[in-house]
Design a protein around this nucleic acid. Structure first.
Lengths: 228, 228
DNA sequence: CGTCAAGGAAGTGTATGCAATCGCTGTGCC
DNA sequence: GGCACAGCGATTGCATACACTTCCTTGACG
């Protein structure tokens, strides 16, 4: 097996969770991949105990799927479940945008506007990688602006679960510019405190991303199925 | 210490999780209570290993709070966090009600209506315990009616986390009748497919419950603080 | 030739032991 | 009298050992 890099072993469970979550979210571990406790243990130079705990936690987050006496695999989501998560994401983003329009401080609004305008440069340059980073930042400001810790938690949870399935989001031609335009509508609505408009814009933004990702996921999973 | 009942020991981790979650949600273990691994282990007649796993899982659900090298306690929520959870609950219920109004099958609508009307009897009798059970059933039908597994999951998660803090919801005089009336508005809206009305009704329903519970939580936590 | 059963290998579930950390208490010093 | 520090008990974190379940393989029988 093409065993990866030397593996930096964070010595605690926290480290394992981070490392594994990173591997899953980034795609180094594909959905469906088996997660053998002993292999992971020796790969990270720890015993099975912390590995087990890490797997339990990842399972609770929803990134891995654990079945009694049958081990753990990187979570694979059915089309139906995937759609339901994108739909949930749209609803949650909508709620966040609405609340953000009502509650964001002046400073938060200004910063949101600033990072958004700054990202126009990335669109112009076609810097996909950097724009993806900006995108995460942008959305997290939106969530934080809602001033509701629990909703933020739910959104983050859903987002991390979806991460493995929308990696190639910005690889589609013209997607960067479209994304920025959609962000622009949201920002504008928030800046003028228009809650309803912000909610609607955020929802349709996610819906569009959902379509793009579904496309990708579909072809991707098909490829995996053919290989496996 | 007034060590509890003989303790029925489910022999697996799943059993432990259920038992502990039950103890927490039902209030036999109060928020803030220490969860000592060895005590729990001998109380349930298993070793520390499955107890640890159970605690990890409960921690992921949010029912217990675990800190490195400092053990686990039944989760205590700050006022702010608690409010954010009730608010999230209102939003989620609103979304569920809206989707349910749009998507419920005829059979689902009829059943919802049936159990709702049936519960009028419980209100008349003042059967708090039974009405509480009906209430859970009612809301779960609402969630299921949204036909979205992930949202259902998020709602259930939030609901179970809140459970320890709204135990006495129906102990307040007249609350049963008010609850039924509010349910009635929701059901009516859903039956006629009025998504907006269903959403609004569900939201305000939760908001009212939230107020009642906050009241209770406040006095309760004060009492706990004075004791501890 | 296909099917089923039995055996074995691999891997997870649980138990236990040891080391390290945290909190507390008691003592000494300022 | 109060504060700091050291020693100790209690409890968690990690490692290892053993038992049980599952799955795959192999062989025999229909």
């Amino acid at each position: 097996m093409a065993s990866g890099p030397p593996v930096r072993s964070g010595k605690t469970v926290e480290g394992l969770v981070r490392a594994l979550a990173d591997d899953i979210v980034s795609g180094r571990l594909e959905p469906g991949a088996r997660l053998d406790e002993v292999s992971l243990a020796q790969r990270h130079e720890v015993s099975r105990t912390p590995v087990r705990e890490a797997l339990v936690r990842l399972s609770a987050i929803g990134l891995v799927d654990r079945q009694p006496n049958r081990g753990a695999v990187v979570a694979v989501l059915s089309d139906e479940h995937l759609n339901s998560m994108f739909e949930a994401m749209a609803e949650l983003e909508g709620v966040c945008a609405r609340l953000a329009a009502q509650r964001m401080t002046t400073s938060e609004r200004n910063q949101l506007d600033a990072v958004h305008r700054d990202a126009a440069r990335l669109v112009y340059l076609g810097a996909e990688e950097e724009y993806a980073q900006h995108n995460v930042d942008f959305h997290q400001r939106l969530y934080a602006g809602a001033h509701n810790r629990h909703i933020q938690e739910l959104v983050s949870l859903t987002r991390s679960r979806l991460a493995p399935f929308r990696r190639a989001q910005f690889r589609m031609p013209g997607r960067l510019a479209k994304s920025w335009d959609e962000h622009d509508v949201i920002v504008t609505a928030i800046l003028r405190g228009d809650a309803a408009a912000a909610e609607a814009a955020a929802r349709s933004h996610v819906a569009i991303v959902s379509d793009a990702s579904s496309e990708f996921v579909h072809s991707h999973q098909k490829a995996v199925a053919e290989r496996g």
